[in-house]
Simulated scan of single mutants.
Amino acid sequence: MHINRLPTQSIRPFDLIKVASMFCLVSSWANAATLAHWRFEDTAFLDDSSGGGHTLGVVGTSPTQVTPLPSSGNGSAFSNPIPQSGASNTGLADLGTSIAGNFTVADDGWMDSIGTNGTFTLEAYVNLEDLSNINPWIVSQYEYTDADERSFAFGVSRDDGGLRAIIAGNTDGSDRTTFESSLNLAFNRDYYVALTYDSSNITFYLQDLTNGGALQSENVAHSQSLTGSAANVAVGGWDGTKGPDERWRGLIDEVRISDTVLSSSEFLVAVPESSSFVLMLGGFSLCIAALRRRS
């Protein structure tokens, strides 16, 4: 076998620009996956920061905005600034133990890609204050009305505070599965939580922000299909007649929905450098080496 060996030469500035462009393109792909991102910021409490215009409305009693973030106690460990973006975190939503309300926004087709792609990621910062007689949901597209429309719900179990999810394979909810994890939330503690879904795996993520814990994950293999839905998207509960029994009690912040399975390096939380990050750096070095060998 004859192998062509290219002469070595110094890297050219234009080559560096091309490498930088590749990394910028990867970054733009990650940003394009965001369907909605509610940050509950000062002067923009209900706004969607993704630019999609999915402004939240209120169902029941309006949750309270807290701004700036508390200096101690509940909510004080929510990340500020936000890892990955560097944006300041200046506010959060308090759904408290006495507030019978949550947020919803109509789905006019902007959520269709999760049913088409069969993938999504849900993220939030949360602080749970109570579990009495409720099944608290963080973010969902799950409606209980005469015209049922059900897709997913992500929250915690009232039995033990463990992260859980419901995935529906049809809109009437008759084809659905509840998935439970052993990642449990304690009361009055700040957490980052996330859920990723694809056709064969659901992965739950939990990081204790109050105590500076590591990002924990638990994977569940599954065969449950996902349906698209025309139901409202809800934050801090779900939509419909059972809403009061399914609302979050505590704090919620930085709720983001993406239509792809994000890697931990793309999450809205600081994580240690993973092997994939090291591999990425190695790949970058190989790119530079390859460019040096070009004629």
Rank of each mutant, 00 (worst) to 15 (best):
T210D: 00
A214G: 11
G240E: 08
L226W: 07
N232K: 13
N201K: 12
L215A: 05
T210R: 04
V220Q: 12
S263N: 15
L195V: 09
G228W: 09
E218S: 08
T210F: 00
R256T: 10
N232D: 15
D245G: 15
S199N: 15
T203P: 08
T210H: 02
A234V: 13
G213R: 04
Q216C: 06
D239T: 12
S263W: 06
V235F: 07
W238M: 14
G250V: 06
A230E: 13
T196W: 06
H222K: 08
Y205S: 06
T241V: 14
G237E: 07
L195M: 13
Y197H: 03
L195Q: 07
L209V: 03
T260D: 10
N211R: 06
L226C: 03
H222R: 09
S200C: 01
T210E: 07
G213T: 09
N232S: 14
E254D: 15
D253M: 04
E246S: 13
S223N: 14
V255H: 02
S199E: 13
I202F: 00
E218G: 01
G213S: 06
A214F: 11
A234T: 15
S264E: 15
S199V: 10
T241P: 00
D245Y: 14
A234D: 13
K242P: 00
D253E: 04
G236M: 03
T227M: 03
S199H: 12
W238R: 14
W238L: 13
G212N: 12
S217M: 11
T260L: 13
T241D: 13
L209R: 00
A230C: 04
R247Q: 15
A214L: 12
S217H: 07
A221F: 09
S225V: 14
Y197L: 02
G240R: 12
S217I: 03
G228I: 12
V235P: 01
S229T: 03
H222A: 08
I202D: 05
G240C: 10
I257W: 10
S258N: 14
A231K: 01
S223I: 11
T196F: 01
A214Y: 08
L209Q: 01
V233Y: 10
L251A: 06
D245L: 15
V235G: 05
Q216P: 08
I252G: 00
L226G: 07
G228M: 09
G250H: 01
T241G: 13
L226Y: 00
V261R: 11
S263Y: 10
V261H: 08
A231Y: 06
S229P: 01
A194H: 00
R249M: 08
F204P: 05
A221N: 12
L262G: 08
Q207I: 07
D198P: 00
A214D: 15
G236I: 10
A230G: 14
D253A: 14
V255I: 10
E254R: 06
A194R: 00
N211I: 04
D208T: 02
S200G: 14
A230H: 03
L251Y: 08
A231P: 08
L195D: 08
S229M: 01
S258F: 09
L209C: 00
Q207A: 09
V261Y: 06
Y197S: 02
S223G: 11
T227R: 03
W248N: 10
W248V: 05
T196K: 08
E254T: 05
R249A: 11
H222F: 07
N219I: 12
V261L: 02
V255Q: 02
T227F: 03
S223W: 00
